[in-house]
């Protein structure tokens, strides 16, 4: 009973701030009010008319999409190599490729800024992209690694035996079986890139900005319900992504045996 109470309170604690943000975005007042006073969608209209927000949103979406695709191109061969081969330095390679998951992003960002400054890779879209590829690749790699099984190896042999080339085998036999994992890892990667501040903040400018960095700068100086409206839209995007993943791979992994 006590456990139930603690658990439900904790769940409420997890949801509360998101509910507050959505609530605030609907208020009619010009200041942040929760519970909202009156209901209006006018703050959404305000941000949709603001070209800076639109531009940042497009930058973020484009950045996340490109970073995710690049991460797949990097992670897929790495995963195949790590599951199908034994080679010296394999565990070191795996440690390096997965380390951005736990290393401070602010340090990675600083390092890229300092290094990028020497080769002109700074405060432009490619600079942003490179950093995001580094931090999202481990997400794709981590979902891919357990998907390459021993059974698949003999299925690939069977496919070759039946007359398919190595490439057709990859597309006809291997890829269909890892597709769901690749897509869900991709969604994780997309979201991770889409909500990143610590890395992007080093390379954004007033004209090249991502949504979270713009929110971050904005929130530090002034706040009004339009911020809440932008935030609500990102919550909505996250909810859609989660439902997609749930639909693809199922999220009931906490079910007991």
């Amino acid at each position: 009973m006590i456990i139930r109470l603690i658990a439900l309170t904790t769940l409420a604690y997890l949801v509360l701030p998101l509910v507050v943000v959505i609530g605030v975005s609907l208020t009619e007042t010009k200041f942040l009010a929760f519970p909202p006073q009156g209901l209006t969608l006018s703050w959404y209209a305000v941000i949709l008319e603001n070209p800076t927000y639109i531009r940042s949103f497009l930058t973020s979406a484009g950045l996340a999409a490109l970073a995710t695709m690049a991460a797949m191109l990097v992670a897929l061969p790495a995963a195949i190599a790590m599951t199908r081969y034994t080679f010296p330095g394999k565990s070191a390679l795996s440690a390096v490729l997965l380390s951005p998951l736990v290393l401070p992003h602010i340090v990675i960002g600083a390092a890229l800024l300092q290094f990028g400054a020497s080769i002109g890779l700074v405060r432009n879209f490619p600079a942003l992209l490179v950093g995001h590829v580094i931090i999202v690749t481990p997400f794709v790699l981590r979902t891919l690694l357990p998907l390459f099984s021993h059974d698949q190896l003999s299925q690939e042999e069977a496919s070759r035996d039946l007359g398919a080339s190595a490439w057709s085998t990859f597309f006809l036999v291997t890829l269909p079986q890892i597709k769901a994992g690749l897509v869900s890892g991709g969604i994780f990667a997309f979201i991770t890139s889409f909500i990143n501040v610590e890395l992007s903040i080093f390379n954004t400018t007033s004209t090249l900005n991502t949504i979270p960095v713009q929110l971050f700068n904005y929130v530090q100086y002034s706040v009004d319900p339009s911020i809440a409206a932008v935030s609500s839209l990102t919550i909505l995007a996250a909810a859609i992504a989660i439902i997609l993943i749930d639909w693809l791979i199922g999220l009931d992994f906490l079910s007991g045996s």
């Binding site: 769940l11 997890l14 949801v15 509360l16 701030p17 998101l18 507050v20 943000v21 605030v24 942040l32 929760f34 979201i191 889409f194 909500i195 501040v197 949504i211 979270p212 929110l215 971050f216 929130v219 706040v223 911020i227 809440a228 935030s231 990102t234 919550i235 996250a238 909810a239 992504a241 989660i242 439902i243 749930d246 999220l251 009931d252 992994f253 906490l254």
Partner: peptide
């Protein structure tokens, strides 16, 4: 539903979540 509630914050920017707490 609970797992979704658990993961939703993970998929939301730190900014948005911290912003919620600024209000609260």
């Amino acid at each position: 539903a609970c797992v979704i509630m658990l993961i939703l914050p993970l998929f939301t920017s730190n900014i948005v979540r911290s912003f919620g707490w600024m209000v609260l």
